[in-house]
Amino acid sequence: MKNNLLSLLLLSSSLLTAQVVADFENFDVEQGQFLPEASEGAFTTGNISLSNVYNAEQNFWSGWAVSATTDTETPGFMNQYSSRSGAGNNGSSTYGLTYAFFQQPIDLIGDAAGAPVMGMYVNNGTYAYFSMLEGDNVAKKFGGETGDDPDFFLLTVFGELDGEMTTDSVNFYLADYRFDNNDEDYIVENWTFVNLESLGNVDRLWIKLSSSDVGEFGMNTPAYLFVDDVTTAGDPTSVQDQRRDFGLTVYPNPFSNQVQLTWNETERGQVRLVSVDGSLLGEYVLTQGQNQLSLSDLPNGTYFLQVLTENGWDVRRIVKQ
C-alpha cells in the first residue's frame, strides 16, 4: 500500500506529459479466453508492442500472449494463461502475460519511444502461484522440505535506449521467502505497481525472471509474468526529471520535532514535504551542509520529502512519532 502511494506521489511529481496506459482492453478477447497468437507478430496496446511467436503446428507460443481467463483455482500448466487475480488490474477483463524463461522485451512505440516508463502493474499467474505455494512435479514449493529455504522469485526490469542498456534496473519480488520469520514470507497474488521511472528514457524494457529454484535445466519455477496498465510518457524527460542519488541523509528517522538533512551538493535543492495522500504541506530550500526542518506541528504519521534540483530529483520517506 505504501509503495503504491509513493508511486502515485512520484507519478504526480513528474512532468505531466501525455501519459498513455497500455491496458490490453483493445483486444477483443472474451472472458475466459486467451490469445496465444498476435495478428502481425506482436500485440500492440497503448504505446507498447509485445512480440509473439506462434506455431500452430507445433502447438507453441513464445514471447507474449493476451488473456482474459479467470481460473484462480486450477494449478498446473494447463492453466498457464490465468492471472492470480483472475482478472486484470482493477478488475479489468484483459491483461498480458509473458513466458520469460529467457529475457523478454517490451518495445515502446510512438511518442513513448525514448521516453521514460512511469511503471506497470504486475502479478503472478495462477500456475506459478500454486507451483511456489505447493510445488509440482518439476518445481519446489517455496521454503523447501523444511519450510526454511530462502527462496525467491524475482522480476528485474532493465531499460534500453538506442541499443545501449541502462545502468539501472528495477527489482521486484514476485515471491520472497528470505525472511527469518517465515510468517513474513509471501507470494504476490494481487496486481502491484512497479515504478520504472528510475530507468530514465528508454525505447525498450527487458523483463528478466529469476528464481532460487534452479536446476541443470534452468529455472524450475514457471517463468510467467503477468502485466497490465503499463503507463508510458509521451515525451522524453529532461535530466531534471530523472531520479538521482544525491547522498542526502535524513536523521533522526523516525523523528519527534525536528529532522536534520545533510546536503552535500553545491547547487541548491528544493524540498517539498508531502503527505501520504499527496497534499503539499510545505516547501524548503536546501543549502550545502546541515539543514534543519522544524516539524513539531505535524501530526504523527508518514510523510515524504521530495527533493528537486536542476539535475534530478529524489524522495525520502520520514515518520513522525
Binding site: L133, E134, G135, D136, N137, K140, K141, G144, E145
Partner: peptide, 13 residues
Amino acid sequence: ELPPTTVQTRSEA
C-alpha cells in the same frame, strides 16, 4: 499412484 516429491504438498497424479 505418483507420490508428491519432498518439496510438493500433494499429488493426485
